[in-house]
Design a protein around this nucleic acid. Sequence first.
DNA 1: CTGAAAGCGCTTACAG
DNA 2: CTGAAAGCGCTTACAG
Lengths: 336, 336
Amino acid sequence: MKQVSIKDVARAAQVTHATVSRALRNSPLVNAVTAERIRQIAATMGYRPDLIARGLVTRKTWAIGAVVTNIADPFIAEVISGVEELAMDNGYSVFLANCNADPDRELRVVRLFQERRLDGIVVVSSRVGALYMPLLSQHKVPIVLINSHHPDEFVHSVMIDNIGGSAAAVQHLIQLGHRRIAYLGDQYGLQSDTDRFGGYRQALAMADYPFVPELVAHGNAKSDGAGPAIDRFLKLEKPPTAVFCYNDLTAVGAFRKIYSHGLRIPEDFSIVGFDDLSIASYTEPPLTTVRQPKQLMGRMAVEILCKLLSGSQEKTQIRLPGELIIRGSTSSPRCQ
Amino acid sequence: MKQVSIKDVARAAQVTHATVSRALRNSPLVNAVTAERIRQIAATMGYRPDLIARGLVTRKTWAIGAVVTNIADPFIAEVISGVEELAMDNGYSVFLANCNADPDRELRVVRLFQERRLDGIVVVSSRVGALYMPLLSQHKVPIVLINSHHPDEFVHSVMIDNIGGSAAAVQHLIQLGHRRIAYLGDQYGLQSDTDRFGGYRQALAMADYPFVPELVAHGNAKSDGAGPAIDRFLKLEKPPTAVFCYNDLTAVGAFRKIYSHGLRIPEDFSIVGFDDLSIASYTEPPLTTVRQPKQLMGRMAVEILCKLLSGSQEKTQIRLPGELIIRGSTSSPRCQ
DNA sequence: CTGAAAGCGCTTACAG
DNA sequence: CTGAAAGCGCTTACAG
């Protein structure tokens, strides 16, 4: 069945389609009574404006793109839920594009979004922001980066305060009395890893603790990358009594390995994560971690986008604090 | 900077924009040499076709909608990653709409998708499929339901075999030697809960086990809903030695409660879940559960959609088997 | 307040 | 093989 168009309504209402358009958009340029009559008729006929057609003339699609590496990543899914929520509240629909860190796919997405004439773009956890530069420079499509690389090359970004968050985590361990605190990071040169490592060192320095290179290991930001690192830590002459992990998934992997060594958490070994995924509440004991306000980050990115889309020129680079959530995986070390 | 349009290219190539259109679409109706020349020029000028304009005339948007209750739900996020992947591979972009089981929002989405002239819609885990009926009947927009209520009212659906999956789970417990097996379900009348309960009863019946009403409790499909149910089970004169849970989150809640009673898993108590979220691998011990092929389900839905969009009239209702994944949370009961 | 006209950027019969 | 024309469903100056 064909959609009823504005002309069908016009015919039924015995006016021009221009008048129908005005009536439906509540233009003051049309007589209140006829306007109401037209609206009635349109409603009865089940008329729905064609946003495609409208977009063609208004040059506005009311659509934004969300580019992510992997929507199945729980961190990203939470961010996107924030993005979607605020976007919808502001009248925007969101196109979701998974890129899996595949450059081909990412390039295709950039082109596609350009061809679809999206009003704006949000990029989550990207390492290849440079790909979006053409869009930004040639077509001045507003782009807001969330927790992505090189935010400074872009004008608008929302970032977690990695340094501050990890410093707080390590300070927490220091206050509990731990002297040998390990850092279990990533290995792919992520800026977030570098920064969290930076926060770790900063906290040590502030407490006048020595930095011990052997207490630093590199996982893969996933659960299965933690094992070898923990093994190595425990074989040290003076093993650490606590580890601060790059993220929650790494921490979960650390849990398993610690248990497999017959140690208890937190009595024998304290663990701190980063992100506060929902899984952090489910470990046994629940994980002490640094919470990233994931939904909020998504919402803020859209808020920035909306401001830009309504003409703001403001340059917005937001750095949000992480919140240390103290749960059961940390305590004072047993016997020093 | 204004986008370069087909007319700009035409001017530069000294042909009409119709010819440019043909050349760019590789129409045989244009001289190979000029076609190539035009393509060159278009490329140099950085021309990108306007999909909005094209869509207006072709009546095809190459966009599909994905309606979900909550993208932050890990189950849904996985399904969507499958949807997005296959959609993109077939040239479709996907609009994501979160509805949070909010009817207002859901109604808005239906209207919006109609106005955006989407080519098709995928609905995940919806309870209110009825809302989409107008779209389906009036505008014959293809709709494929994934794990949603009342799939039979719709022509196309992808469902997990809840009955078979849960029967397999319970059979597994029976084979391990458990005699008193509890079912910890949901309480909101979800069809999936009814079906999983059905599979539970079916497995008991096949083993000639009695059905014991006191071994059935109702959680809330989330982690925090399991506690009271487990408490009640353990207070029974003859408590169960194993519990089959409606889903993994419920199972995780059961874990915590079992541990808080000082019992061991699986030595003292076996637990089985349903879904196989990534969290199922992270519990201690890892959770035995029924895997839903989440990504596959998403991909299959899009595959159906694509067939429909290329003219197929076939009615497709797929029921996928779940796979029992045996991990560490189940074993034979200690002492009967 | 309303209509007639132009136009958004494309595609596609229809002539030639 | 190419152009001229019509049209997709809208919006919006421009007249009246």
